[in-house]
Simulated scan of single mutants.
Amino acid sequence: MKKVKQSELKKYLSTKSDVELKKEILELFKLYPNVQEYYYLKIYPEKEEEIMEKYLQIIRDEFFPERGVPTLRYSIMRKAISDFKKISKTPKNIAELMMSYVEFGVDFTNVYGDISARFYNSIFSMYEKTISYILKNNLQQYFKERCRKVMEKSRGIGWGFGDDMECLYYENFED
């Protein structure tokens, strides 16, 4: 299927009346939960942390479900972050979600023991993205200490994971 370009969409939308446009938006709203969340935050921007908590719970449940065994579906966790980024207007909340993924991952390996190279690559990659995002958005004052703590908790973890976390931390934060 060919991807629709923004210019093509604009041309299509220009052929619609205000009533027809409203009808289309309402149809999208009914069909897609992420569109519902998008408009929820447009109408109630002060409720962003409430929506963030939903995505945080998705990630938490992959590592530490209330019942059953952890599933560690990396695609589900990355999608939760990606979906939240699409609707969030607050970089601090996005960084919070990303940082929580890393913290849950380090806590998970400290609870369950040595995991796998894929697991450590996923957690380290998110740590790298999180630090980059924090620096890009000047959020060091909120997250530097958490980055340090998660790095310290990773010391001694196998596959060179702890060493990589430490190097990344000190490359980006001067102490």
Rank of each mutant, 00 (worst) to 15 (best):
1 M>R: 08
2 K>T: 14
4 V>L: 15
17 S>W: 12
19 V>Y: 12
23 K>F: 10
28 L>E: 07
29 F>P: 00
32 Y>D: 02
32 Y>A: 01
34 N>H: 13
34 N>F: 10
35 V>H: 02
36 Q>P: 06
37 E>P: 00
37 E>T: 09
43 I>V: 15
44 Y>H: 15
46 E>D: 07
49 E>G: 07
49 E>R: 13
50 E>K: 13
50 E>T: 13
53 E>S: 14
53 E>M: 07
56 L>K: 13
59 I>P: 08
59 I>M: 11
63 F>E: 05
65 P>L: 09
65 P>K: 13
67 R>W: 11
68 G>H: 10
70 P>Q: 12
70 P>S: 15
72 L>G: 03
74 Y>H: 06
75 S>A: 11
76 I>G: 06
80 A>R: 01
85 K>Q: 11
86 K>V: 08
88 S>L: 02
93 N>C: 03
98 M>V: 03
99 M>I: 02
102 V>H: 06
103 E>I: 07
105 G>R: 03
105 G>M: 05
106 V>I: 10
107 D>Q: 11
109 T>E: 15
115 I>C: 08
117 A>Y: 11
119 F>S: 05
124 F>Y: 14
125 S>L: 14
128 E>W: 00
131 I>A: 02
132 S>C: 05
135 L>V: 07
136 K>I: 02
146 R>T: 08
146 R>K: 15
146 R>D: 13
149 K>S: 10
150 V>F: 05
151 M>T: 09
152 E>R: 08
153 K>G: 10
154 S>E: 02
154 S>Y: 00
155 R>A: 13
157 I>R: 14
160 G>P: 03
162 G>W: 06
165 M>G: 03
166 E>K: 11
166 E>A: 13
169 Y>E: 02
170 Y>I: 02
170 Y>C: 00
171 E>I: 00
175 D>Y: 04
